[in-house]
Amino acid sequence: MIPAAFDYVTADSADAAIAALTEHGDEAKLLAGGHSLIPLMKFRLATPSVLIDIGRLSDLSYIKEDGDQVAVGAMTTHRAIENSDVLKAQLPMLAHVAGQVGDPSVRHRGTLGGSIAHGDPASDLPAALLALGGSVVVKGPNGERTIAADDFFTGFLETALAPDELMTELRFPKMPDAKWSYQKFNRRAQDWAIVGVAAVTNPMNTSVALVNMGAMPLRAEAVEAALQGGASAADAAAKAGDGMSPPTDLNADANYRNALAQTLVARALAETGA
């Protein structure tokens, strides 16, 4: 399968990428590792007329501690995240979830920023970002802004990222002692989750995010509220489908996904001790 023709430009700095986005507007897409965008282009579900290759912006590939946060450059590959000693110590769930994406060859190319910017409700890492209470740093012609994970995903493959903005960094509060669980249910190796659950329990609260339970990556707000109100983990898990509109596809219908979400949330909460 061959994508539709496009013009190809390379950006050798973040500012050059933003300038190219400003010049080409809606017609342009940024190309990072390409492991979400290229498949879409091959199916011609995406037909950008200009690709701006940011694959050489190695200064956006880093994992560093910054006070009570860890900053991860948007171009950091899943492989680097999976193997990062800093993340294994401070945010073990993020390292684990990165290792659940695709397969090793995919993880050599795919990037955290690319996966988050794609905003696929079936992807693993957006749920981790939500459950960990992370934030997204973006840069545009008017400077930099930081968007909370909860405000970032806005619809099916839609995010708060403006057409002329480049995601530069993901920030996560350190949680070396949090109890966490990532439940990914699929039927074949390397498939997307039919449903997935990311849960993080801290002394004060538990956050739960769901994969493939709606048009975008979502928090399981009903579960979180029930736990906050003192409900048992079992009673809270029973609310996993509340307010959700899960998709129906060849793998599962919406009712099945609702039931699966309840089961997986129960397993996740049992693991975190919520």
Partner: peptide
């Protein structure tokens, strides 16, 4: 990018060459 028949090494790491543009 599912089956891996097109796997090559790019700078020493396995990559699926059906999911990378030649220009990259």
């Amino acid at each position: 990018s599912s089956c891996g028949a097109c796997t090559v090494h790019v700078n020493g790491e396995s990559v699926k060459s059906c999911t990378m543009f030649a220009v990259q």
